[in-house]
């Protein structure tokens, strides 16, 4: 095995990891802050790229196209949110419904299942082509700025009255309502914000890869969860500040892509990665449960300390 080949992959790992981390931060908002598992993201992860590419091809301004991708994601979140709050559908099912519907919507947006976009013909923000170039257009640098700005804006937002209301909703819905917080509104808001970020990430990914594909979002939620969980397991002891917790998600995403490349470098196919990702996430979700049970058994025997 050629270690140089792996080193050669590292810039790509960094760029992809950073792009997906924006998506993982979106997952963090629903899964950790709002305490809702939102499966819409598998659909939104395509929608963002589709909207961006179609608008770019129509000679739309790059930033306007990015903004529209973000808005399209928010719209998807709004649909899931309304299915959940206004129609009383369990959140997980509401997400699945929107995700399914988005498959058709994404095909409608793109007109075909795959849309390529060339960096030669269109002014793209990031492209895999420049990932090894030491220039201002290097996608690693651009994505890093994107990630840091995202963290900064979210850090500000979750410190505002409305942001605190959103956090309270996830922490304790009963208490939130007793303090006059419209939990339906904050839930919808959180879902919109999350899916907006996912779509933004998708728009970056479509540029980086040079195409949008109707299947590119498949399993995105699990990758997002993997990033969130890896970040939490590795950094929760050292990172307490909210901005640092988001940074932990970014590290989680980078580590995920590093593992991804190592696995491929070891000779596995990228098709196997979904299985491996699912195993990793299942394992990390099970660990705290096993740990609790183990301690509970110990306490029963009178070995553990009194609670």
């Amino acid at each position: 095995m050629d270690i140089l080949a792996l080193v050669n992959m590292l810039p790509g790992v960094a760029a992809q990891g950073l792009i997906w981390s924006v998506m993982a931060i979106g997952v963090y908002i629903t899964y950790k802050i709002l305490d809702v598992a939102d499966l819409t993201v598998d659909g939104t992860m395509c929608t963002g790229g589709a909207v961006f590419i179609m608008l770019s091809m129509a000679k739309c301004n790059l930033w306007v196209a990015l903004a529209c991708a973000f808005l399209a994601g928010m719209l998807a979140g709004l649909v899931t949110g309304l299915l959940h709050t206004a129609c009383g559908i369990p959140a997980i099912l509401a997400g699945i419904l929107t995700q399914l519907a988005l498959y058709s919507v994404n095909l409608r947006i793109m007109g075909q299942s795959n849309r390529p976009i060339s960096v030669d013909k269109y002014p793209l923000l990031v492209s895999a082509r420049y990932v090894r170039e030491p220039s201002i257009t290097n996608p690693i640098l651009v994505c890093l700025v994107f990630v840091l700005v995202t963290i900064g804006v979210l850090y500000w937002f979750f410190g505002t009255e409305q942001g605190c209301a959103l956090r309270a909703t996830g922490a304790n819905r009963n208490m939130a309502r007793a303090q006059g917080i419209n939990t339906n509104f904050t839930t919808v808001l959180g879902l919109m914000l999350s899916n907006g970020l996912v779509a933004l990430s998708a728009a970056l990914l479509a540029q980086y890869q040079g195409f949008a594909d109707v299947n590119s979002g498949r399993g995105a939620i699990v990758i997002g969860l993997a990033a969130v969980i890896i970040g939490e397991v590795l950094f929760s002891k050292v990172f307490h500040n909210f901005a640092l917790k988001l940074l932990a998600v970014v590290f989680g995403s980078l580590i995920y892509y590093l593992v991804y490349q190592v696995v491929i470098w070891l000779g596995l196919k990228s098709d196997d990665m979904k299985l491996i990702t699912a195993l990793i996430v299942a394992l990390f979700l099970a660990l705290p449960y096993w740990k609790n049970r183990w301690f509970a058994r110990k306490a029963k025997r009178g070995i553990g300390s009194h609670a």
Partner: peptide, 24 residues
Amino acid sequence: GTAATMQIEENLALALRRGSRRGL
């Protein structure tokens, strides 16, 4: 009655804004 994952002062701040519009 309280949000376990939030700080004491954050919980109180939520209560202080009961009944008023929450903005940015």
